[in-house]
């Protein structure tokens, strides 16, 4: 059963097959547990490095097909991956602590990429929403924007309004059941990447 929900052009969402293969670097050799104020650090700060050089060097990249690669992997292997970019086989994964600027520095035109995915390690990391917002509104990214990682039904409505149009639901949850999360509210108050505030959307003058 596929875990991927896709919003169709008509606004309907459905569960579809995932045609992209994720490229994931091997685990770091010395994955030390970081602590702050006695608690395990759950989130990387914006701007922190994602992988070691060793991890990047040892990353296995499938030779054919559509591949979804972390930005750092692209940076380390772009000489060999460049032709596949032209062929439309490259999608990029940005983690929530990485920046849109770093992505733009690699791709003058983001719309060369058929797919950008934002990886959220923990669902409670709300940076994913701002990254989605920026990619749609500031960078003019028009292709598929996918939320991956700890993606759960109860955040889907926010993901959608922040510009995401596909959602890879966490493996242990049902994508079919998550579909309803996209329609929790029918008339939100605020604007969103493709919407205006409700007072511009509807006539709210008093009866």
């Amino acid at each position: 059963m596929s875990q991927l929900i896709q919003l169709q052009a008509n606004g309907q969402a459905r569960v579809v097959e995932d045609t992209w293969t994720r490229v994931i670097p091997p685990a770091a050799a010395d994955a030390a547990v970081r602590k702050q104020a006695g608690k395990v650090v759950l989130f990387k700060l914006t701007g922190e490095a994602s992988f070691t050089e060793e991890q990047l060097a040892q990353t296995h990249i499938p030779p054919t097909g559509n591949i979804l690669v972390p930005l750092a992997v692209w940076q380390a292997h772009k000489a060999t991956l460049q032709p596949r970019l032209a062929a439309g086989e490259i999608g990029i994964v940005l983690a929530t602590h990485e920046t849109v600027e770093a992505l733009q520095a690699e791709f003058a035109d983001l719309n060369q990429l058929p797919l950008i995915a934002i990886f959220v390690e923990r669902f409670s990391d709300g940076r994913i929403f701002t990254l989605g917002h920026w990619l749609r509104s500031r960078c003019g990214f028009k292709n598929e924007l996918r939320a991956i990682g700890d993606v759960l039904r109860d955040q889907l409505f926010f993901h959608k309004r922040a510009g995401f149009n596909s959602f890879l639901i966490r493996a242990d949850r049902s994508a079919e059941a998550a579909l309803s999360g996209l329609n929790d509210f029918s008339q939100p108050y605020q604007g969103a990447v493709d919407d205006v505030p409700v007072w511009r959307r509807l006539n709210r003058s008093q009866a």
């Binding site: 990391d125 709300g126 929403f129 701002t130 917002h133 926010f158 959608k160 922040a162």
Partner: peptide, 14 residues
């Protein structure tokens, strides 16, 4: 109040 209610981007702040 209305703007901040279920603001899609600011639902999970630091």
């Amino acid at each position: 109040r209305q703007w901040s209610t279920f603001h899609p981007e600011f639902a999970l702040l630091p």
